[in-house]
Design a protein around this nucleic acid. Sequence first.
DNA 1: ATTCTTTTTGTCAACGTTGACAATTCACTT
DNA 2: AAGTGAATTGTCAACGTTGACAAAAAGAAT
Lengths: 335, 335
Amino acid sequence: MTVKRATIVDVAKLAGVSWKTVSRVVNGEANVSAGVQAKVRAAIAQLDYVPHTAARSLAGSRAYTIGILFDNPSPNYTMKVQTGAYAACRASGYHLLIENLESGRDDVAQQIEAILMNARVDGFIVTPPLTDNAAVLDALEVRAIPYARIAPVSFPGRSNALSIDDGRAAAEIAHHLWALGHRRFGLVNGPADHGAAGTRRAGFLAALDDLGNTSPVSESYGGFDFETGIGAGRYLLTLADPPTAIFAMNDDSAAGVMSAAAQLGLVVPRDIAIAGFDDSWVAQSVWPNLTTVYQPISEMSQAAAEMLIARGGTNAMPEQIEIPYRLVPRASTQP
Amino acid sequence: MTVKRATIVDVAKLAGVSWKTVSRVVNGEANVSAGVQAKVRAAIAQLDYVPHTAARSLAGSRAYTIGILFDNPSPNYTMKVQTGAYAACRASGYHLLIENLESGRDDVAQQIEAILMNARVDGFIVTPPLTDNAAVLDALEVRAIPYARIAPVSFPGRSNALSIDDGRAAAEIAHHLWALGHRRFGLVNGPADHGAAGTRRAGFLAALDDLGNTSPVSESYGGFDFETGIGAGRYLLTLADPPTAIFAMNDDSAAGVMSAAAQLGLVVPRDIAIAGFDDSWVAQSVWPNLTTVYQPISEMSQAAAEMLIARGGTNAMPEQIEIPYRLVPRASTQP
DNA sequence: ATTCTTTTTGTCAACGTTGACAATTCACTT
DNA sequence: AAGTGAATTGTCAACGTTGACAAAAAGAAT
């Protein structure tokens, strides 16, 4: 029924060498003469040989699998993470495993336990907000499971990490709005536990100071979602002296602010300029399209996966890599 | 460094039985006396024993992994599929593997080849639009890889499948709009290759006929995305005798129509009622919130995974399961 | 009691690969 | 020509589990 797959033994027989030699070629080990290499490669191609992952990971120490540990309410974000990691895995013949931790529940410890006990993985890519969850990081380290964090905020330097310069990106937003002539600003903060939101806020405020802004910045607090964005927007826009430009810390809440503006009869960007952060899918699904900062999520994720594949199994000597972001001006802040 | 994991041998020693007996208990095989069962379970619990997936799949025939084969531009959709499948897998100790096929490229055959050659999976969950891609289905069947399709349209009965009654759901939309007093209707079609869109269209039109509708339904054509939704909406709304209610075949394009309405100075739902399909994330991210049909995507996906896990490895005797949908009336069609 | 089933438990060889180590070959020195 | 060390290739035992089959124990039928 099923076509039986060729094994390393078949290849060895065809090439006229021992299996071990084939193994060496497959794994790119040194010290195999060019002639033998060629013979083996030809045999592999002829038989369509593909190593049996389960056998490899049973015999060796690697699992040939990278895991993603996530708990992100935003499907857009999560999918981007996956896309990047997937590309890296496919390139190296690795598999991608998805593990969803629900950190809102009260059995987090058990969930981690269950996941890590079962997971046969060469490393985990950890995404926000888990990146800043000490329990998660501890659990990984106790088991000596390598991991890389994407856009972490707390515990700098604790692990392999990929990030962008949130502060400078927010500052660019400030410059952008300032250049458009705005002088009264509003801010929609993220959830308290999302550290990057804090960094963005600081960068934004510092930049305004540098620019010589004197009027106080109105701040409102919300989650990172559409719903609370509406509330925050309504609050800011009904102040006695409302801002003419609002910076929301992510796109979803920016979309909420736009909705609030519409409900109040305000036209974007004529009456109010709005900027978000992430360049997620919403940014181009609202009208007018949202000015935002492109966060290279899949690039970060891809780099994370490559890192984990390359360094084969250690948390020692963590690497920190910064990936470039990009300001994306769109209609929502047009003059 | 790493805590060595207990193996089946350790458990057997502790319980005072042979490994094979432990294996039997772990796999829930029949013919193990109650007393031995209890002893073995106690030993397993005490040692935190978890079977080694790679070893199992090497020795046995199962891979303890379910794959998702997708090529969906909508992250929301894909994430829902994953969530459902993940729940089913976790419940049975299975792993979830993600494979992304890019059917837009011209090397589809090679991609399938590469994926299926490498994939050690007990079955694939296939999502639209791949569900209706003959090359994909053929490739799976040639290799005798079990699979279940989610919301397929073409090739009915060809495989295990999970679906909703698209036609009846669209008919309910028609009834809903009719009951609100609308008599002039517009339709935004989906891409030609998306069969479910056709089914929805047919159901919608048939229902209007049944209701005694006499005025012709204006149709426009678009993709399934926001961008083309705008174009379709603008077309419909600038007709000489424009509709008072528009049904777009998915939420993204419905959001586009709403945007077009806003650009034309029309107020939803006062001037124009708009309904979508899917109850995706956008539906609640636009204002006013979108009336739509809840598509139980993660339920379908979960059922698909359970099916594949349960029937352990065959495409014979495919099962067809229908999952209930739900009309979700929201503000966009409010009187 | 004795035999015959049936149920329960055990033994052993795969499964396809890697890692440790041994053996061979090769290219230089002397 | 022999000796040396390095480069290349080979052998064999794991890895942790399942499947096929054998053995033992327990029940049922005589």
